[in-house]
Nucleic acid binder design. Structure first.
Lengths: 339, 339
DNA sequence: CTTGGCACTCGGCGGTTCAGAGTGCCAGCC
DNA sequence: GGCTGGCACTCTGAACCGCCGAGTGCCAAG
């Protein structure tokens, strides 16, 4: 038995199933793909493929559908990324052009991704702990409250209101700001926590408590649970792709619980050759998301990978196109952010 | 015919229909509510109510369901807001406690609202044009770019990167910041545009272009389409409440298209007595949202109404409870923000 | 190894039947 | 005049049935 043909059959089954959304039979297969053998031969191949666990029958006397394992070998060994059309490339550029700030970039990015893939798109904000300080700003809010604004090299801006316990004179704020930036600017946020104890020593004794309060606010931004943030788009695509109600609800819930999404993304590591990462169906740990695949890619700011973006869709999805779109968008947004 | 009883019948029909999600018949009605008349009598009342357009039959020989008009008189004349339970009040306070900033407040608020009402919740960010300047911050980003950060009295923070065309010395930035805040602080953003032409005159001639650039960035934040922003939660509740697929898709799309949501909210004005506003089914103009009602309320920062929050749900919803929840959350968030 | 033939399986579709819930109407009653 | 019980009628939804067709597995022959 030709091993190459069997893979061709698997490919054909997946392509047809993705397109038609219906179990595909041996006869339809030879008609729509020029396999140059008879249906009976295909049936033998199918039996073998089923034996190996790549395809399955919903019930006796129905066609075959791919299993998660089947999709996996399709992604790994059979399919190639399908290059984006000229129009699609232009669409990405148009959609993400002229952003006014980071929020805007990510918002447009996630929309572009949703539109391109017709699926639910997710974009993670650049990780704070992997960013460095561009500027720390301190703004008196009147009374004894200060607003601490942290601006990172990835363009992300975090703010915290802090209660100092006493009113801070304007000139002290000014000096504090100047000194703080002198010390912190350019420094990775992750290393700031280490110096939290020693940093105040550089300041006048009477200002040290104040410095500690401000630094704690900065550190707090990076603290667990605070630093991660995602934007979503394309939820409406769910209604189109889902077949039944039951499959829709758990996905909506996962989307709502952004923690789940974040865990999902952080579990993934890009394939070095394609630059994207794919989790198919039960490959991820979330029971309710069986039937859902994730295609994601890291994106970079200033050369270093900062966060991930990607899409969620039914395991029955067009992987080559989706993977290509995710990769293209990730590359483009990296360029924009690093600029 | 007793007019009071007819309203009681309408109330009973609505309550049962909301609870059971099925057309309700005359017999079931007398059994579940002590109306103290026979089913036949109720049938006469029902015929009259149908005549007036408050209820309708999906088909002959089925029970009755309320029409949008029926819900309307229910909300206006029959039902009272159902006070929240002690547990619910506590839930609101717990969910929205200890916010770190405005984003956090609104995020928690929208989640609380979704959880309380089991529906899709929407919270609009405080309107910029109704806010005033608390502080304008200018941060050099290196090269010829500046980051302009606008902080409003409602706690909202907007940022824009501007290209000055030349590198601006640190001390000019410092002076600019100081002078700008002197002039702008406390001033309503809406009036800032008016002074856009005259403001630069207060500065040194060589700095005026720079001032204009910065001011344009501020003004740009308030410009149409930029200033409106919403947060959403509870999308997963849709899957629970919707009966069929067709009713779900348009709502998801409207949610995606935040413009639609914003228009929807801005069309509404609070009833002075209850403090909330209700749009039922076709009462709003969006064809695809027939079948969807909106319950919303304005919320205030510092005494003035800044924006709206509310929920979207099926016309078949528990209005008394929903309205009470929306009102309670609006009041609570107003208190938090104004603090 | 491939192929045509063949018997078998099973889901989905259309048609039919049936019970139940609900209605409208009417005549009688208070 | 409004309320009520009785009655005939309507319509949906569930259950049932039988058939068609797509699809399979197996086998014997090429």
């Amino acid at each position: 038995m030709s091993d190459a043909r069997r893979l061709a059959v698997l490919r054909a089954i997946i392509e047809d199933y993705v397109a038609m959304r219906e179990p595909v039979g041996s006869k339809a297969l030879v008609e729509r793909h020029n396999l140059e053998v008879s249906p009976a031969t295909i049936r033998n191949d199918m039996a073998a493929l089923e034996e190996e666990g790549f395809i399955t029958q919903p019930h006796t006397s129905a066609g075959r559908i791919p299993t998660d394992k089947g999709y996996r070998v399709f992604v790994d060994r059979i399919a190639n990324l399908k290059p984006l059309s000229q129009a699609e490339r232009r669409a990405i550029q148009t959609l993400i052009s002229d952003p006014v700030d980071l929020d805007d970039v990510l918002d447009r990015t996630v929309r572009a991704l949703a539109q391109l893939t017709h699926q639910v798109a997710v974009v993670q904000y650049p990780s704070l702990s992997r960013s460095s300080v561009r500027h720390i700003e301190i703004v008196p809010l009147g009374g004894s409250r200060l607003l601490v604004v942290l601006i990172t090299n990835s363009g992300r801006i975090e703010q915290r209101t802090v209660e100092t316990g006493f009113s801070v004179p304007e000139d002290v704020v000014g000096e504090l700001r100047a000194r703080l930036n002198e010390v912190a600017a350019g420094r990775p946020l992750a290393t700031l926590a280490d110096r939290l104890d020693t940093l105040p020593d550089d300041f006048r004794p009477e200002d040290r408590d104040l410095v500690r309060t401000v630094l704690r606010a900065v550190e707090d931004s990076v603290a667990a649970g605070r630093e991660d943030k995602v934007v979503l788009a394309g939820t409406a695509n769910l209604a189109r792709s889902a077949i039944d109600f039951a499959s829709l609800s758990p996905v909506l819930e996962a989307i709502e619980e952004q923690v789940v999404l974040l865990r999902l993304l952080s579990e993934m590591a890009d394939d070095p050759s394609s630059g994207v990462s794919v989790r198919i169906g039960h490959e991820h740990e979330h029971e309710s998301l069986t039937g859902t695949s994730v295609v994601s890619s890291g994106y970079a700011a200033g050369g270093e990978v900062m966060a991930r973006l990607g899409v969620l869709g039914p395991t029955r999805m067009d992987y080559p196109t989706t993977m290509a779109a995710v990769r293209a968008v990730a590359r483009y947004v990296s360029r924009i952010i690093s600029a």
